[in-house]
Design a binder for these strands. Structure first.
Length: 214
DNA sequence: CATGGGATTGACT
DNA sequence: GTCAATCCCATGC
């Protein structure tokens, strides 16, 4: 058993945290999954809720690093983020997809679906699968009940693909979506696969676009 | 106080 | 591919 990531992990550039969280584990009760897709949001770009400044809705985003920011999307879904960077900086990593690890039957019951790839392959799906509701907004990701654990020892560091964020209209060009290359558990639309990623990387060798793994 | 726009999903054509 | 469901809240009159 490893202990949850501490606030210092989140007290870094939100893009660095978004990359670092891929491969870690999100756990709530008996259910957990490996994070395979994230997106970074920062107050300096218009797609971030914190762009409008400090309001009742965004107050969590300006709170302590390592806090959960949970909000309702499209009136229906709860989406979960990890608050990053220092106090007074509005930034967070949206957790978009998980590879289911434990508590599979409970996830299947909550999702009313059986297929492993249908349980957590989207930001609204994974909150339903793990029973993450708005009541967890502003809770600590270190002390729980919702926790983020380090990458399991038996897991290799995943190769990452960087692509554009999903479902936004502003600042859509930033390549701040990070996913495990070739994973079957990422959300739609799928980012470029590992082969396409390697080809694109070779074609633009030398260009700094934050798309490499490591 | 009224309005409109979402960091989505699933059902249907 | 298209579209409705459904709620919070920021914005504007």
């Amino acid at each position: 058993m490893s202990s949850p990531l501490r606030p210092a992990f989140y007290d870094r550039s939100v893009v660095a945290v978004a990359r670092g969280l891929v491969g870690c584990v999100l756990q709530h009760g008996d259910s957990s999954g490996l994070i395979v897709e994230t997106e970074a949001y920062h107050q300096t770009e218009a797609a971030c809720h914190a762009y409008v400044g400090l309001t009742a809705r965004t107050s969590t985003l300006f709170g302590a690093p390592g806090t959960a920011y949970v909000y309702r999307s499209y009136g229906i879904h709860a989406l979960v983020n990890a608050v990053c960077e220092g106090h007074d900086v509005g930034a967070a990593v949206l957790i978009r997809a998980l590879e289911p690890l434990t508590g599979l039957d409970a996830m299947r019951a909550r999702r009313r679906r059986d297929g492993l790839e249908e349980l957590c392959s989207g930001p609204g799906k994974l909150t339903q699968a793990l029973a993450i509701g708005l009541e967890l907004n502003a809770s600590s990701l270190q002390t729980g009940p919702l926790r983020v654990l380090p990458r399991p020892d038996d897991r290799l560091q995943p190769a990452l693909v960087a692509s554009e964020r999903i479902g936004i209209s502003k600042a859509a060009e930033l390549p701040w979506r990070f996913s495990v290359a070739g994973s079957r558990y990422v959300s739609r639309p799928r980012p470029p696969g590992r082969a396409a990623w390697a080809a694109a990387r070779a074609a633009s060798a030398g260009r700094a676009d934050g798309s490499t793994g490591s």
